[in-house]
Amino acid sequence: MKLNQDTIREMAEDGQRLDGRDLKEMRDIKVETDYINETSEGSALVEIGDTKVLVGLSIEIEEPYDDRPGKGTIVTNAELAPMARRDYESGPPQEDGVELARVVDRGIREAEAIDLEDLCMVEGEKVYTVFIDAHVLNDDGNLIDATSLAAMAALKSGYLPAYDEETETLNRDEKWKDIELQCEPITVTGHKIGDTLLWDTTGEEEKALDARLTVSKKKDGNIVAMQKGETQPFTADEMSQIMTEADEKIQKFREILEAEVGE
């Protein structure tokens, strides 16, 4: 597929793409919450073009860490299923899966989207842990954005099950309350091929990718997390451009989220 990569690079120079989109144009985005009927406390299937990511929440009761007895925990994990791409190997999370999980996690954690004190049941003894598990089913590029969006949609539609003090277990059939979100960080990624910046890359385009910059922003516009990926450098101007152009994508993501899981 070297041929395709060369073509993609040449086209990018002229501001063109294989699928005919403009450089800033996103593919169709679909969000379906409550995709999992019974076994998950919040879930969302997100499709960006042919990329398909399923996020499911699992809520467990655990002991808090010693240094923060009044706070619950969030754990983010991502699995790249072998079915998602021809060159994925089955097995435990590879480097890509670990980076994906950590970048998604950082956006949520640093924005303090979830009030960890709100997850405390009995100080020093019992707290809720919110597991955010992403299952990548089909990878046609822009995984970080798709996974972050799915995570936010799952959290927005998610709930904490009731805690039964007598049995010291969760009563999963009974909802205690919604997961309260203090703010809603949105994570989007700008990509660079040659000297051209572009958005929402396909799997094919990502084989020709030089660099990417992921930006997580809160509603007030402040940036809470960033991650540069791939092998080539950015100039400061390119990074500024991505941070600026990110706003339009973030706004679009917010509108899609509102439409699917509005207040």
Binding site: G56, S58, F131, D133, H135, R172
Partner: peptide
């Protein structure tokens, strides 16, 4: 393979 969220207890 079973996804972590495919069962009640993760």
């Amino acid at each position: 393979n079973m996804a972590p969220f495919s069962v009640d207890d993760r």
